[in-house]
Design a protein around this nucleic acid. Structure first.
Length: 446
RNA sequence: GUGGUUGUAGCUCAGUUGGUUAGAGCGCCUGAUUGUGGUUCAGGAGGUCGUCGGUUCGAGCCCGAUCUUCCACCCCA
């Protein structure tokens, strides 16, 4: 085993993987652009202060910090306790981005005067998180985000839901899009009498799929919810779709939110006829601190891999960067998990052979330059062509063509040189043709 | 971050209660076939058993640390 290794949670991508990833990205990008989103790229590093405090305490711990350059220890006072939290800001002032939403908000703030609202952008770039890798969880992974800021209109939510549905339709992946609202969660927490411990309440709710209703109720009761209230909520969060709307009616103060959800779902259904479903699910809890309106999550019922996308509406994401009252809503696709899901369901299209189509055999002497010339002409015609770089046994060169799955081999040796011909061999059938030394003839024959 | 798990040839994996020289299949290289591959046959190369340390007369096997993988928690895409 070699001593060099790849950093934890990081991956190399082979030719096959790259082309498959490009396939997914291509589909997503096409839909984003079809919905008139503009591309944006931001740097991999942001100022540490831009990122900290945006993802909660847990999130802060997972931010990859980058050491200052130079003799940065000079500024650290003597006798500073050996506490990472105290040291960190003294030795690090920049960090790798944790998601694409916060850098986007920063971008809006930086360019506030040049941006026309509503502003729609999509962004497909890697993000980094310092947590422990697992299946479908990496330290470097891609997010594909689409956000629109500067509009309160619910049509934005509708569009984003249509984008989700359309992309997964194109990829052939059956998905459920779950939708709920921050107000629904607020209402439930208020009913439970634990509005002051909102995030704890949501964290417990979020585990319902994993640990079950009974365990969730148990934990709520432990945090101070009465058994009666917990039971009412248990019944409510077990409902879906139209039943869920009915169940939510009894938790007042969320009429507006429910009407909004109805509108989004109604418009979605009016405009989409494929397989993906958009369904109101009051058990959906996304803890991210900045969501204020609708929240969504996409899961793939056939693959146990967690969510493959998520998003929501945020009333004032840019407020923290000094730009007030710019509402926004966004979604994110998890490229790496979509990849795993497609792989598991065998949904990648028959692999396009993007290796070489033809190999020029090298017979050395003067034949090599002549063959190389012909290969160059084929390349000019757009044929993916390979030239064997040095003279070698024919057996070896054909073997090479075979392994790279190259369909045709072009041979021009002593014999052919003498009578101004070439031999074109079809590697699939074994058939050989003698042709004049002319590109057009070769083009015709392949 | 907490607890557990994995690592033996390029790949997938055997390897008994600790006991000579660590094996198999596939792949790779050479030849049979000096200009004809994917088949066959013959031969060959390749491992300080993840790394470092310890116990032992003796360690792939036992112990410790560390790295990596995967899993559960936490959190999330």
């Amino acid at each position: 085993m070699s001593k060099v290794s790849i950093a934890k949670g990081m991956r190399d991508f082979s030719a096959l993987e790259v082309s498959r990833r490009q396939y997914i990205i291509g589909q997503i990008k096409q839909v984003f652009e079809n919905y008139a989103f503009q591309p944006l790229e931001t740097p991999s590093m942001e100022n540490l202060s831009t990122l900290t405090g945006k993802y909660g305490d847990e999130g802060d711990k997972l931010i990859f910090r980058v050491l200052k350059s130079g003799d940065f220890l000079k500024s650290v006072p003597d006798n500073l306790p050996r506490d990472a939290h105290k040291w960190s800001p003294m030795v690090s002032d920049k960090a790798l981005r944790y998601d694409l939403t916060v850098p986007f908000a920063r971008y809006i703030a930086t360019n506030r005067n040049d941006i026309k609202l509503p502003f729609k952008r999509y962004q497909i770039q890697p993000v980094w998180r310092a947590d422990r890798p697992q299946k479908g969880r990496f330290r470097e992974f891609y997010q594909c985000d689409a956000d629109v800021v500067g509009s309160d209109s619910l049509f934005q939510e509708v569009e984003l839901m249509l984008i989700y549905a359309t992309v997964f339709e194109k990829l052939g992946l059956k998905v459920n899009i779950r939708i709920s609202s921050r107000s629904v969660l607020n209402g439930l927490a208020a009913y439970a009498g634990v509005a002051d411990k909102f995030s704890t309440f949501c964290t417990i709710l979020d585990k319902v799929d994993k640990i079950g209703e009974a365990a969730v109720m148990q934990q709520w009761i432990e945090m101070g919810v009465t058994p009666e209230a917990a039971d009412q909520i248990r019944i409510a969060i077990g409902t879906r779709g139209e039943n869920a709307f009915g169940a939510m009616e009894k938790f007042r103060e969320m009429d507006k939110a429910l009407a909004d959800l109805r509108f989004i779902i109604q418009q979605f259904e009016n405009n989409f006829s494929g397989k993906a479903s958009l369904i109101f699910d009051p058990s959906l809890a996304r803890g991210l601190d900045y969501y204020t309106g609708a929240i969504f999550e996409v899961e793939c019922p056939d693959v146990a891999i967690g969510s493959i996308g998520g998003g929501g509406r945020y009333a004032d994401l840019t407020g923290i960067f000094g730009v007030k009252d710019v509402p926004g809503v966004g979604i994110s696709f998890g490229l790496d998990r979509i990849y795993l899901a497609l792989e598991e369901r065998n949904l990648f299209p028959v692999d396009v052979n993007d290796g070489p189509q033809i190999l020029g055999v090298n017979f050395g002497e003067k034949a090599d330059v002549k063959t190389f010339g012909l290969i160059t002409q084929l390349r000019e015609k757009g044929i993916r062509s390979e030239f064997y770089p040095q003279k070698a046994k024919l057996k070896k060169q054909l073997d090479y063509a075979n392994q790279l799955d190259i369909s045709y081999v072009l041979m021009m040796g002593e014999e052919e040189m003498a009578n101004n011909s070439i031999v074109l061999k079809n590697m699939r059938t074994g058939e050989q043709k003698v042709l004049p030394q002319d590109v057009a003839e070769v083009m015709n024959a392949i």
